[in-house]
Design a binder for these strands. Structure first.
Length: 500
RNA sequence: CGGGCAGUAGCGCAGUCAGGUUAGCGCACCUGCUUUGGGAGCAGGGGGUCGCCAGUUCGAAUCUGGCCUGCCCGACCA
């Protein structure tokens, strides 16, 4: 083997160890990063995924933030069962029709065929409604404000980790109210919580609004949603909030006695965010090196990489551990900073840098003999990659802790600002169908278009361009504005996009 | 669910067209030594019922059929 041949081979082998650059192929990048950062893996069953510890840790951080918002808005957590008897599922016609193709059934148990098949919940309106009908008596029992964290199953045809899986983890809120106005207010309130969760916790700028008739939840009167925008120009429905009217109340007999001694049906809502939003967050923020996690949902905030030869090793490790202990006293986002010292002996520093960059850890600190000598360390943020010096007194571990938490806050803010800019830049107000087609075909993102609001137009646009309405803009079109597609009077301005 | 591509060690691949000794290579892994501020080097070593099931054949990773799984595109989809 010649020297040159050897070098060429090294370069080639190294390529294999890196993930596909996001700039080159965002779709392949997504798959690579999820597997290689050990977030998740495929299971023996098609379309199902295993959450590995690091991936699950991210999900648990997301859950903690969203759960906090749900509890703070007055809801109580509980848990309803996985199975729904077929006869109960069948009661709300539109609901069952909407879900029929994707329901998984249990037909056998205890070694025998069951008298009645059990659906594995695709969502829990039914089983929850049945229980409420049993419990609810008086207007004094209202409102009911329940939430559960659960797994659900929908037999999807095409699956991708996090974005669409047969079994997925989510949160589903279900509420019952005395009045229509109160239920509508609840629907709006939770949509707003979702928007803020996406923006403030996940640093994802989303657009929100009401869904078209054809895009709404089966069984709902109205569905509202938040939509994120992915780097390939496809929209990702990241959370939905449904005003269910009295549809489920009537189908499942959810009634109570009013003040005036009359029996009344309740008004219900439901709203959900699934692990899909985690997939969206990963895809939106990452770069060619791997993930970039918003600090608020990063399982590790700071990784400390010791740089040492054999002689220096004990001293350097001791100083790293001391620094880690000090940093763990720093409060960030209401809790102790999560700090990891990568003291593995078998890897060199460069390998560790790449390892933690792939995993999206927001801050890295490097400590070597030179730093200890000079009472300093190197601190690097994952977004800019810029190296800065931070003063440390290695006798007392005195340091400017504020500047560390400030770096995390800045990173969180910078990610959101970047997301906002990215999404805003991908909203194209189009004036003609030609322009509309271009925006969609070129994967440029949302086309905001005047639309007559009919299902026929929507269907035709979908067939011709593959774009669907994502949400309807709050601001209506001006007077005499024509529908881009039919030429008739425009009723709405809608965000259209290809979607996941 | 349709069209295309793929499945050989943990990962990436060669070998398959033209069936024939112990199925190779790189990375990763284990041991030792030397290294350590951007993915270390050398030496030694372990690991594979060639996706699964049938069939053809004296003989199948290789040929035939079926199935499963993944990826891309479409359809479907809260």
């Amino acid at each position: 083997m010649t020297c040159n041949g050897g070098l060429a081979r090294v370069a080639k082998k190294d390529e294999k160890r890196f993930i596909t650059p996001k700039s080159e192929d965002a779709s392949q990048w997504y798959t690579d990063v999820i597997l290689q950062a050990e977030l998740a893996d495929y299971s023996p069953v098609r379309g199902c995924q295993v959450y590995r510890p690091y991936g699950f840790a991210i999900w648990e951080k997301i859950k903690a933030h969203l759960n906090g918002r749900i509890i703070a808005t007055g809801h109580e957590n509980c848990y309803y069962p996985l199975f729904i008897p077929k006869s109960l599922l069948d009661k709300e016609a539109e609901h069952v029709e909407g879900f029929a193709p994707e329901v998984a059934w249990v037909t056998h148990g205890g070694g025998k065929q069951l008298d009645e098949p059990l659906a594995i919940r695709p969502t829990s309106e039914v089983v929850i409604g049945v229980m409420w009908a049993k419990w609810l008596q008086s207007y004094r029992d209202l409102p009911i404000l329940h939430n559960q964290w659960a797994n659900v199953v929908r037999w999807e045809k095409a699956t991708r980790p996090f974005l669409r899986t047969l079994e997925f983890l989510w949160q589903e809120g279900h509420t019952a109210h005395r009045t229509e106005a109160e239920a509508r207010a609840e629907t709006a309130k939770m949509l707003e919580q979702y928007r803020r969760h996406a923006g403030e916790d996940l640093a994802l700028f989303v657009i929100d609004g009401i869904k078209s008739e054809s895009e709404k939840f089966a069984g709902a009167v109205e569905t509202y949603g938040i939509e994120a925008m992915m780097p390939d120009g496809k929209a990702l429905q990241s959370g939905t909030s449904h005003f269910l009217g009295q549809n489920f109340a009537k189908a499942y007999d959810i009634k109570y006695l009013e003040e005036d001694n009359t029996e009344q049906y309740v008004w219900t809502t439901s709203w959900g965010v699934s692990h899909r939003i985690m997939g969206g967050m990963l895809m939106a923020h990452g770069d060619d090196k791997g993930l970039i996690l918003p600090p608020k949902v990063a399982p590790v905030h700071v990784v400390i990489v010791p740089i040492a030869r054999d002689d220096d090793r004990p001293l350097v490790l001791e100083k790293c551990q001391g620094l880690a202990r000090r940093l763990r006293e720093v409060v960030y986002d209401g809790a102790a900073l999560s700090v990891k010292v990568d003291d593995r002996e078998e890897f060199r520093p460069g390998y560790k840098f790449a390892h933690w960059e792939l995993r999206g850890v927001p801050l890295r600190i490097e400590v070597g003999p030179r730093d200890i000598e000079g009472s300093t360390c190197i601190i690097v943020d994952r977004l800019s990659g810029a190296k800065h010096e931070l003063q440390v007194d290695y006798a007392t571990y005195e340091l400017d802790a504020e500047s560390v938490s400030a770096k995390l806050e800045n990173l969180q803010a910078a990610l959101y600002a970047r997301s906002r800019e990215e999404v805003m830049g991908r909203i194209h107000e189009v004036e003609s169908y030609e322009e509309f087609k271009q925006v969609i075909a070129e994967g440029r993102g949302f086309a905001l278009a005047a639309w007559d609001g009919t299902a026929e137009t929507e269907q035709r646009v979908k067939e011709e361009t593959s774009a669907t309405t994502r949400v309807i803009a709050a601001e209506p079109p001006g007077h005499n504005v024509k529908c881009l597609f039919s030429g008739g009077p425009a009723r709405y301005r809608a965000y259209f996009a290809a979607s996941y």
